[in-house]
Design a protein around this nucleic acid. Structure first.
Lengths: 255, 255
DNA sequence: CGAGCAATTGAACGCTGTCAACCCGAGTGG
DNA sequence: CCACTCGGGTTGACAGCGTTCAATTGCTCG
């Protein structure tokens, strides 16, 4: 864990004011203990938060910005195995050595807790462990879904799925603000998109351009893509509509 | 959850006698409660334990045999996103709808608990939730490692990695029995191997044969493969030696 | 304005999926 | 006992998607 901290930034702040996922909604006594442990850290894009196979000293959650979790093979090939967005937890409790590297994909602000202290807190407050479990379970779902994507889908399908993922996420945010965005922001570089999708920047570019020619999307600028035909984009993704409409849980047979 | 049960098999048994992962080492009172909930179920190879997007009514752990977790795309393409071996937990607590299908890859025996009852038990005994967390975290590590494999490695590398995985697992078991096996058993069909590795049976076959020609392995029979040159197989896998030697945790810098 | 990086475009090669034929062992029935 | 069938596995030929290498464009920043 690097110790970068923006000059002048307060080392200790009221976590509850940030409404972070870790502590919001918790009982006041637990929250006060959490606040005592909380340290705000800022990272610039490209900086390493935690190295692969490094000892995990801190856990916490993303306040702002995006982190990438990635793994690297001996010969340098690497793959992004997960993105961490604001509110997501990072780090792994009850595990000394990390199996992924965590880096800042954009400038990022993190709310960190000393891992050992946090684990002690967990032992006294099972509600905290429950939250960690939910977080890890959610990550597992995402990872398994991505395995399906990486193993069976074409590059164009992957790109379409990724765009729809960004769209859904934005829609969730915007729904609260009563907007209907057709322009999705791609908050990370093409290189990171490619690495996340298990392909190359060239292939991503080609897929995007082919979807532009197919009138599914259009390009506003490098980081903003307009959805011209949502249905078509859905078809191109090869995914089920419900994959992008949270809350529409279907059930097959009743066990 | 299908209700197949071998005729004459006892519906209720002493779970502690099975030394299952869920209950072994737990305090006696919790274990007794678990035993009361436990139901042994048997499945034949190919049977569905839990359908994709089906309501999760049971959780538990594998007693014998192998389960596959898989996901299916609209057009039928499917991918095995995890294998469940004896002692592994299956099912997902605190989640009503499953995101994966669970099927028996071989004849299998499961120790099942009603999910809701199990969740109640969890709320009273945090040690149980801790075990679930460890299990899910372990699954997540495996999933992320497999993402790296699927996205960046060649089919031959994947096959080599898979063989070494089986080898390591066998070695762990055998180490206790003081044996040194050079023959690994492939406990699932070529089709399942291919689906787990994100490829086809043809490519798996070709990779195996090419490794035979390269004197890395030799074929005893369809389900038994002899490792002729472990170092060569490791090279072919493109993996780090430590990936297959549990307990050799390295640390980079000290945080 | 030039340097440098990101993104796009083009061309060629190669891995691997697809389709097909073949082999083989197990189970079946005459 | 043998012919037949069937499913799983292997092998071969071939095409296509996507990577690789290379060149070009466009944008940002000093």
């Amino acid at each position: 864990m690097e110790s970068y901290r923006a000059a002048g930034a307060p080392a200790l702040i009221k976590c509850s004011m940030l409404e972070c996922a870790m502590c919001s909604g918790l009982d006041l006594p637990i929250r006060m203990e959490l606040e005592r442990l909380a340290r705000i850290r800022r990272f610039h894009a490209g900086e390493t938060v935690l190295g692969e196979q490094e000892t995990v000293t801190s856990v916490g959650n993303v306040v702002a910005g995006i982190l990438r979790m990635q793994k690297t093979l001996l010969d340098g090939r690497q793959q992004i195995v997960g993105l961490l967005l604001p509110h997501d937890m990072f780090g792994r409790v009850f595990t000394s050595v990390s199996h992924v590297a965590i880096e800042a994909a954009t400038d990022a602000t993190l709310c960190c807790y000393n891992r050992v202290n946090f684990e002690e807190l967990i032992k006294r407050h099972s509600e905290l462990e429950h939250r960690v479990l939910r977080s890890v379970a959610h990550e597992l779902d995402a990872a398994q879904d991505w395995m399906l994507l990486l193993a069976t889908q074409t590059v164009t399908e992957r790109v379409a799925t990724f765009l729809l993922l960004l769209w859904r996420r934005a829609r969730q945010q915007e729904n609260m603000r009563k907007k209907s965005p057709q322009i999705v922001e791609v908050p990370i570089s093409r290189k990171d998109v490619a690495s996340y999708l298990g392909t190359t920047v060239e292939s991503v570019s080609r897929s995007i351009q082919s979807m532009v020619r197919g009138n599914a999307i259009s390009i506003v600028d490098t980081t903003h893509i307009q959805i011209e035909n949502l249905g078509l984009l859905l078809e191109l993704s090869g995914r089920d509509r419900s994959d992008f409409h949270e809350g529409t849980e279907r059930r097959a047979r009743t066990g």
